[in-house]
């Protein structure tokens, strides 16, 4: 599903975020990306959704080389992945339903498709009773669940989550992680950058640890690390 070969990324301000990363993620995997701030976790997720291009190396997603991909094909790449961020990124003047429906409107889905798929996604995340509320009327956990519903509404093969629990309290974080596990159990690949060591330790999934732009550890059923 995702292959990175000897990938380096140096930003224009000369900061080297990644240095010779090689990483393979298979379909259906649940992978935690851990490491201190500035280790390169966010840069890695940005390379995979082609928000950034690598300075060196090759990034392949769904069998397609991202550095060679033309700009106008990028939207179609992103439609096959769902993204979840720490700050939710909901549109404030749209309701829960409209926020989720927006992902489908953008790709030109019909009204009947929207009427079918949006309630389904909202049921999946447990937000079916609040579909007429606006983001400011919701708790952080509810906002993030809405964002997850939006990420899964067009059945993506991959979910990229960049610190999805960063703004949530521990209980809410756990509920959200259960939701991600449910989604993963249906076959969706999940790559999650996180600082939540307790969650990582408990879930015993594959853990990729980054430090100073280099992968220092990649183990199945791993824990967050020893230095927390």
């Amino acid at each position: 599903m995702i292959q990175l070969y000897n990938v380096s990324k140096t930003y224009q301000n000369k900061v080297q975020a990644l240095n010779g990363i090689t990483l393979h993620i298979n379909k259906g995997e649940f992978v935690f990306l851990v490491g201190p701030s500035g280790a390169g976790k966010s840069t890695l997720t940005k390379l995979i959704c082609r928000e950034e291009l690598p300075t060196h190396g090759q990034v392949i997603v769904n069998g397609r080389s991202l550095p060679r991909m033309k700009n106008r094909q990028v939207p179609y790449l992103r439609r096959k992945m769902g993204m979840v961020y720490q700050d939710f990124r909901l549109i404030p003047n749209k309701t829960v339903f409209e926020n989720v429906a927006f992902a489908l409107e953008i790709i030109g889905a019909s009204r009947s498709e929207i009427r079918q798929a949006v309630p389904e996604a909202l049921r999946m995340v447990g937000m079916e009773k609040k579909l007429n509320m606006r983001p400011y009327q919701l708790s952080g956990g509810e906002q993030q669940r809405t964002a997850v519903a939006r990420a899964i509404v067009n059945n993506p093969a991959l979910i990229l989550a960049d610190e999805p629990t960063g703004n949530l309290d521990p209980d809410t974080s756990w509920e959200l992680m259960k939701l991600f596990m449910d989604i993963n159990s249906l076959g969706t690949t999940i790559l999650m950058a996180t600082h939540a060591w307790d969650i990582v330790d408990e879930m015993k999934k594959r853990v990729v640890q980054l430090e100073n732009g280099v992968i220092v550890r990649d183990e199945e059923g791993g824990v967050y690390g020893h230095d927390h």
């Binding site: 959704c49 700009n71 939207p75 790449l77 990124r89 549109i91 927006f102 953008i106 939006r150």
Partner: peptide, 16 residues
Amino acid sequence: RREIGIMKMLGATNIF
């Protein structure tokens, strides 16, 4: 601009 960022994240085409 925030909304534009979200649209791009969701795979909106340039035309859209």
